[in-house]
Nucleic acid binder design. Structure first.
Lengths: 237, 237
DNA sequence: CTTTTTATGGCATCTAGTGCCAGAGTAAAG
DNA sequence: CTTTACTCTGGCACTAGATGCCATAAAAAG
């Protein structure tokens, strides 16, 4: 594969090595105590090139996230499946990206927990995903303009995704398959919440949503009796 | 009211004037193009005192937000009402704080939209509220540990709040009462979504959630027939 | 081999942010 | 009223992240 599209150039900065060196230095000496000069010296790259390539010290720690976001955004544009299924798969891409690179994502998680500034940065990243999901859902599901349902659905999805992700970050020993299973479970929950919200407004325009909570194992007849009682005899419902 | 507790001190930095001066400079010259020296000169305060009081250039723009967060956190600790009602009221405090200070919040919104770095900062602020709401709900509603429902509920709430808030920020001419009405409407929607989620897990432990979407006006009998068909004859449901 | 293109690396510079210390101003004690 | 104690301001020096400029090294195209 040819690089960026041009014709020549000096050998590029070895991105991966720089990131690993930076992560090591951040972990050993702390994020603020580590200077760009140290990272430059340690990774054999000039300070100037570090800034050119990564933009900022923080960006070294989150390198690759922009690319991942592009991948996710492209996936949404391709829209292979039904909308919710598509955004779930897109979120799964993010989760798998974390799972597949523990060498970076785990120490980064520890750093992010310790430094508010880095935490803010990570939060901002997830907000970008949320915004992208929200826009996609609003467009695909054709929710009423002015309605917050697409935002709420995207927010729930991100919250559920992050919940599962944090579970792994805190206890990375657990099997990746197990984590993915928990993710699917969480997405089922999101679907149960989001689907009625989205369809209730996006459909013919007069759909209603009925949500019933009942003790498990009461049987079909009893369930119907309770619902019938709950909706009263008011006629049209 | 006496200040911090000590005995003396030089007159304090006039916070409000500094903020207004900064907002004006940011708006006229751009955020990055404005230096702390300019703000210092323009507001008649030394550069050193600006940093001491606000911490950073960004913090001038978001001054008062920490105090607001403390107010909100305190409100949650007081917990006057039922949990969801309490978090709704807490969110309302935030909305009203924005509505009540358009002189700052409106130009800030324009700046935040233009500068990704400021946007990230604002996002981080809302994430703090979301985390506080989530913790509060998890504690109050006693959701199963490991379940993402409290996070999802808080995320939906924040999304709905921000939706209403952005609506006003984009069109600040509309009446504050109108905005608040939209807020209440949005919170109703959040309640319909969040309540079953939270209670389904916090109850006896085996509750199920049934969500049915149906065309409005079909009548009670037809509704029951459809639900009966949907849940099949599997016996226990 | 020469040209073109693209990336690196050194240098100067700008400015956000911090530690330090002197001094101003206020409130209480005598 | 004077002294004392305390707190906050403001100036100074300094660190380090970040950017523009320019020379130069290396790879691809001819």
């Amino acid at each position: 594969m040819e690089r960026s599209g041009g014709r020549g150039g000096q050998p590029r900065v070895p991105t991966r090595e720089v990131v690993l060196a930076a992560v090591r230095l951040f972990t050993e000496n702390g994020f603020e105590a580590t200077t760009m000069d140290q990272i430059a010296a340690d990774s054999g790259v000039s300070r100037r090139s570090l800034f050119r390539r990564f933009g900022s010290k923080e960006d070294i720690l989150f390198a690759g996230h922009d690319e991942l976001f592009s991948t996710v955004a492209g996936y949404l544009r391709a829209s292979p499946d039904e909308p919710l299924t598509t955004v779930f798969a897109a979120a799964r891409l993010v989760l798998q990206d974390y799972l597949g690179d523990p060498e970076v994502t785990l120490p980064r998680y520890r750093l992010v927990r310790a430094h508010p500034r880095l935490r803010d940065r990570e939060v901002a990243m997830t907000a970008r995903y949320q915004a992208a999901f929200s826009r996609y859902l609003a467009r695909q599901e054709g929710t009423e303009s002015g309605s917050p349902v697409a935002e709420m659905a995207a927010a729930s999805l991100i919250a559920a995704h992050n919940h599962v992700l944090r579970g792994w970050l805190r206890d990375p020993e657990q099997d990746g398959q197990e984590v993915l299973a928990r993710f699917e479970e969480a997405m089922d929950l999101v679907r149960r919440v989001a689907e009625p919200m989205l369809h209730a407004e996006g459909g013919p325009g007069n759909d209603r949503v009925l949500v019933a909570v009942y003790p498990g194992g009461i049987g079909r007849e009893e369930l119907l009796r309770r619902i019938g009682a709950a909706v009263q005899e008011s006629g049209r419902v």
